[in-house]
Write a protein that binds this DNA or RNA. Structure first.
Lengths: 239, 239
DNA sequence: TTATAAAATTGGTATGACCAACAAAGGAAT
DNA sequence: ATTCCTTTGTTGGTCATACCAATTTTATAA
């Protein structure tokens, strides 16, 4: 096989400008809160058009490095501790509809997972699930179900499908949901009845998987997630 | 306490343009891989300057939604791409079993998609699907179904679910399959009977979606993909 | 000193022009 | 008929200029 080459990335003028600015921020020449020179000044100093400078500033603004105000100039923002948000996360938060799309996605995928888990689960996996279920029971007695346990329970079901790719996929979806919703289930299902309902759902799901009854496992999971989505809608989209 | 007011966020023209474009991506008008109209066209259609359009495209490119190539136009990128695909790719190469896992994944996801498409499809989307179906019929008469048309057909079904995240997700699954298998369906289903079987499957699926019959659409898709997986296994894993 | 108004500054948009990279169409060689 | 190459039109990248809109600064008046 011939040697491979890296693709040549032609750098646009605007990117060079952006690069120089970020460099100045890195080396401390430009500090947080500083106002940049005006676009006209920058274009003259760097010997490029104002268009290119504007495009550069636009890029930096999209990265959260700058904030520009109409008529007021551009100032360096504080990005310490500010997580660099992934593109897909930005896309999701642009429209609340996306959150429901995610929930929808999760619902049918987990329904399938429950079915497959019922068919393929090993005794070991069943034991682990039973452990989590009992932990949830104890937590319920003491007060409230903890989200982490609930999460582990669902993850174990995913693992029991013995489909590694699915496991990876659903993990990604979980993290996206966590990010976009920004609240944990604990803060949504606070009432005693809600908690009990969820616990009952999980008991049913466990039953189905334990008895290797795919249909029952699937329907129980569907019921569970339909409830979760419904409550979620009520809470965040008031309908 | 005096009543509080939300800050008025003055939306720049470029942001309105970007918003309209993302909206088109959401509702499925623009799909992964599509080329946008040229900047000049967009500016004329929307009645804004090319400057504003360019700034909008720049924003979307920064978010990873677009990729623009000098002289080549701007194409819609897969939003889930970076996050999901990379880690899995390495995984797949390790074991041929992963390919079957992918097929399994695809099967139940597309079954859901067929069901949802039957419920949510618009007349426009149905028309597009019909076009692809007829194209496949003609190709069949002339010799062989082309994989690209088959792919477009399935993608259109995904779009008709009106779940953007799913659309991007399934796109990834497709590319993963192509990546791992490295052969096209054309090379698997060569016999006249196989081709006819597939064509009949697609007719059934279309019927279900056309008549807005979720159950029929889902079962037809299941039948189709079960066949595909079975033949695939025979060919590559000789069992 | 404070309040108001005017002027200068700065970002936002529009237009037109030109260059560079790409893609499709057409033609030449095989 | 196919392949390869050239040509030509299209598309993105950059520049220059002008004007509008929001802000900041300065000047002015009370």
């Amino acid at each position: 096989m011939p040697p491979t080459f890296d693709p040549i990335r032609v750098e646009r003028v605007s990117e060079k400008v952006a690069g120089q600015l970020t460099k100045r921020i890195s080396d401390g020449t430009l500090k947080v809160g500083d106002r940049l020179p005006s676009e006209r000044d920058l274009s003259e100093q760097m010997g490029v058009s104002r268009t290119s400078v504007r495009e550069a500033l636009q890029q930096l603004e999209m990265q959260g490095i700058l904030e520009t105000v109409h008529g007021g100039g551009s100032v360096i923002r504080n990005i310490t501790g500010q997580e660099i948000r992934k593109p897909i996360e930005r896309f999701i938060e642009q429209d609340k509809k996306r959150v429901l799309e995610l929930a929808e996605l999760r619902a049918f995928m987990e329904a399938w997972a429950a079915r497959e888990a019922a068919r393929n689960r090993t005794g070991q996996e069943l034991e682990t699930m039973r452990g989590y279920l009992e932990e949830m029971e104890r937590d319920f007695e003491k007060g409230a179900i903890r989200y982490e346990v609930d999460f582990k329970y669902h993850t174990e079901i995913a693992a029991a499908t013995h489909n590694t790719i699915y496991l990876h996929l659903i993990d990604n979806i979980y993290s996206l949901i966590n990010y976009s919703v920004k609240v944990h289930r604990e803060e949504v299902f606070v009432s005693r009845e809600d908690q009990e309902t969820i616990l009952n759902h999980h008991r049913k799901i466990y039953q189905g998987i334990c008895n290797q009854d795919p249909d029952r496992a699937e329907s129980a999971m569907k019921e569970h997630l339909a409830f979760v989505v419904r409550e979620f809608k009520r809470k965040f989209f008031d309908n």
